[in-house]
Design a protein around this nucleic acid. Structure first.
Length: 287
DNA sequence: AATTCGTGGTA
DNA sequence: TTACCAAGAAT
């Protein structure tokens, strides 16, 4: 499958988006911040927040010196605000354990809060040029189609999938560029709902296309409910605090989510998560 | 292994 | 309008 390499790398060279964390001058910290923000959040929404974040906190030590609540506030509406908390905690761990420098080793990265297999591999590859198996949703879909011949990969990463990704990964120094190129192809061409095979540099080699684009036939993929869920409730409550300076009286939170039992349950959960703190008898604030 | 955790854009 | 999806991690 090394036939995939040349056309894909050539395509990436011509079509890659100019993203701040991909520029030569981008620091490992910039890459790390981008990877946290891009966990389940599209690039276009990350761009302005990432820019402001790096301008405010150019190094891990700058962020670690702040209260966690400042990170939650700056996170804005990117979603999943516990990522802001974890990024803040990771910055603290980097100061504590790595002298303020983002570590380059996969194992050291994996040990940081909020860093799982994907993010550890991505930082090691994109910030430090290492050969790592980077398996995100894009890579999984592209390789699942091009090599595996299926429209969508399994719910969780399989051993066969990891072996396949390892098998097609070129040696250094091309490996990291290859990985970001596969991701970019998944993001721009080999998309989930409307792949543009006519624009794909490896269409001729694609197993799924050769088989006539067979439809997904695995177990039904979960659709997240939203209306009325705790996630919606938590979002409303945290949003009310995040968009206000200083403590917020419970009357404001009652207006944000009238249903009492769910509101109190979610407030307690937000406090337990460290996203909110009680401020006196009848108010809440960012930590 | 299956759930939980935000938000907003698109078809 | 509803359904689906977007560079996942933690439990």
């Amino acid at each position: 499958m090394s036939d995939l390499h040349a056309p894909l790398l050539a395509w990436y060279d011509e079509h890659a988006r100019d993203l701040p964390w991909r520029r030569p001058e981008a620091s490992p910290w910039s890459v790390m911040v981008s990877e946290f923000m891009l966990q389940q959040t599209p690039v276009v929404r990350v761009l302005p927040v990432h820019e402001r974040w790096l301008a405010t906190w150019p190094t891990p030590a700058d962020l670690a010196a702040e209260p966690a609540g400042e990170a939650v506030r700056a996170w804005g509406r990117l979603g999943y605000p516990r990522r802001a908390l974890r990024l803040h905690a990771a910055a603290g761990a980097i100061v504590e354990r790595h002298d303020g420098e983002v570590p380059a080793s996969y194992d050291d990265l994996l040990a940081l809060p909020g860093v799982g297999d994907y993010t550890a591999a991505a930082i090691a590859a994109f910030a430090f040029g290492q050969r790592q198996v980077v398996l995100d949703t894009n890579v999984r879909r592209v390789l699942g189609r091009a090599v595996g011949g299926v429209e969508f990969p399994a719910a969780s990463v399989t051993r066969a999938e990891r072996d396949r990704a390892e098998a097609v990964l070129p040696d250094e120094p091309l490996a990291a560029t290859w990985s970001v190129a596969v991701m970019e192809l998944g993001a721009l061409v080999c998309t989930a709902t409307s792949p543009r095979c006519d624009a794909c540099p490896v269409a001729d080699l694609c197993t799924w296309r050769a088989a006539g684009h067979p439809a997904y036939d695995g177990p039904p993929r979960k659709v997240q409910a939203w209306a009325g869920t705790d996630r919606q409730c938590r979002g409303r409550l945290l949003g009310a605090v995040r968009d206000t300076d200083g403590p917020v009286h419970v009357s404001r939170l009652e207006a944000a989510w009238p249903e009492a039992a769910q509101r109190e349950r979610c407030l307690a959960a937000l406090v337990a998560d460290g996203l909110l703190v009680r401020a006196g008898e009848s108010a809440y604030a960012l930590p």
